[in-house]
Design a protein around this nucleic acid. Structure first.
Lengths: 151, 151
DNA sequence: TAAAAGACTACTACTACTATAGACTTTATA
DNA sequence: TATAAAGTCTATAGTAGTAGTAGTCTTTTA
């Protein structure tokens, strides 16, 4: 049940982009900065952020002092939205996908045991990803930091 | 969050192998029979069943009248066990894997927001797959069939 | 007008997935 | 005891997706 590197880097980047908003800091962050902080190839990250931009989740500013920033508030962007842009459907198998259903070719879909269980799995994952916003993530990070007495 | 064809076919086959036990029928089922019923390549399925056999989940009988049968009772084999043999770890990302942990290289694992959420996802999937046995699946199939008045 | 930033496209290396093929072994039974 | 039915095992091949590189273009600010 792998998350791709593309998905991983994209989610990490979005979480980073959600942080300054909370701190009321200058919200524009550059590719290079994220890449260095997460030790990721800047060129690869560039493609990922571009995809998120084209999906309407990020805005950008070109030229000197430019960079990326969230298109909506961190509480309005869910991990599920980001995931689907970068890694496609959440469902483990197409016949239980809400967003891109396809028959799987089993003899009888209605009574297919695998389908019933994978439907549960899909819902469990979607429940988490669709109900966790970037704001929830940064909030949780801060809670853990405080608990550990970091920063 | 894809389930591979290998995993899909293996799970389907195991569910089929769990059915005759319940019906007190002759428990030995041949590759060919499963392949035809599920419209799968018999040669591909062969490799999958062999892997499950080598993992101790299936026994087999060679020669005329031979075939495969469950090594343990259907209630003692979980979907999680089968999944791990065929598709590897359940965790979306290695740093939250129980069975095969590996650091993911993020600056601080303890306070990594992505890791916290993906840990939840891992647990949600594992909760389902590790607590669903083959017997649970066949039971559920029969419940649906009765409800629909099939067979 | 130069430098800093993103936009866009093409391409490449690698790996994993999905099979296919074939030769071999075991077993029942005619 | 010969034959056919079944699983065993290993090699290989095509394909698609993943992860990343490279290079050129465009926009913006100082």
């Amino acid at each position: 049940m792998r998350l791709s590197k593309r998905g991983e880097y994209g989610l990490r980047a979005m979480i980073i982009l959600a942080e300054p908003v909370e701190k009321n800091a200058m919200p524009v962050v550059q590719i290079k900065e994220i890449a260095e902080r997460e030790k990721i190839s800047a060129k690869f990250l560039e493609q990922i952020l571009l995809a998120l931009k084209n999906a309407g989740m990020l805005h950008s500013k070109m030229g000197v002092g430019g960079g990326y920033y969230l298109a909506r508030s961190a509480s309005e962007i869910t991990l599920g939205q980001i995931f689907r842009v970068l890694d496609g459907p959440i469902a483990p198998i197409n016949c239980v996908s809400q967003m891109s259903y396809e028959p799987c070719g089993c003899p009888d879909e209605q009574t297919c045991g695998l389908r019933l269980v994978m439907g549960d799995v899909r819902n469990a994952i979607a429940d988490i990803l669709d109900n966790t916003s970037l704001a929830d993530v940064t909030k949780r990070q801060n809670t853990v930091r405080k608990k550990l007495g970091i920063k």
